[in-house]
């Protein structure tokens, strides 16, 4: 265990946008409980500057949470040319849905594609398994 284990990990605020991914979708068709589905679902895509602010490197795991839920997912660079600090992308999945607010203003439609959460390093924590989300 390194000295870093005793330091508080920096926490950043993020706006999260969800998207669809055909590879993840195909993995879902094969098995919602498969490794491939978890690998392609339990991820968050970040701006490189946010990765630095979190004091992590790509493919480290991060805790993403808000008052609706908490998941540990793998952090990846978004790969977008344009900078997007403070905005992160998650593929539509039970992991992203764990964080979607239930507030609808009476419309019956939650904000699946636009919600806020915080992220911080999980310090080597394991990705939340699909059965552990509940």
């Amino acid at each position: 265990m390194g000295f870093g284990q005793f330091l508080a990990a920096p926490e950043i605020k993020l706006k999260i946008v969800t998207y669809r991914d055909v590879f993840q979708n195909a993995a879902q068709e094969s098995s919602r409980f498969g490794e491939e589905y978890e690998k392609l679902s339990a991820i968050i895509k970040l701006d490189p500057r946010d990765i630095s602010r979190l004091s992590i490197t790509e493919n480290d795991t991060v805790i993403v949470k808000n008052s609706y839920g908490r998941v540990v997912v793998t952090a990846q660079r978004s790969g977008y040319e344009d900078a997007h600090p403070g905005i992160a992308y998650m593929v539509n999945s039970p992991w992203s849905n764990a964080l979607v607010p239930d507030k609808t203003s009476g419309t019956g439609v939650p904000k699946f594609k636009d919600f806020e959460a915080t992220a911080q390093s999980s310090k080597g924590g394991k990705v939340t398994g699909i059965r552990e989300i509940f």
Binding site: R32, G69, P94, N97, P110, F134
Partner: peptide
């Protein structure tokens, strides 16, 4: 359908 996967967790919890 799999609403426990596709609904917000805070809503899906009641369904479960």
């Amino acid at each position: 359908s799999d609403p426990l996967s596709s609904l917000p967790l805070s809503i899906a919890r009641y369904l479960a």
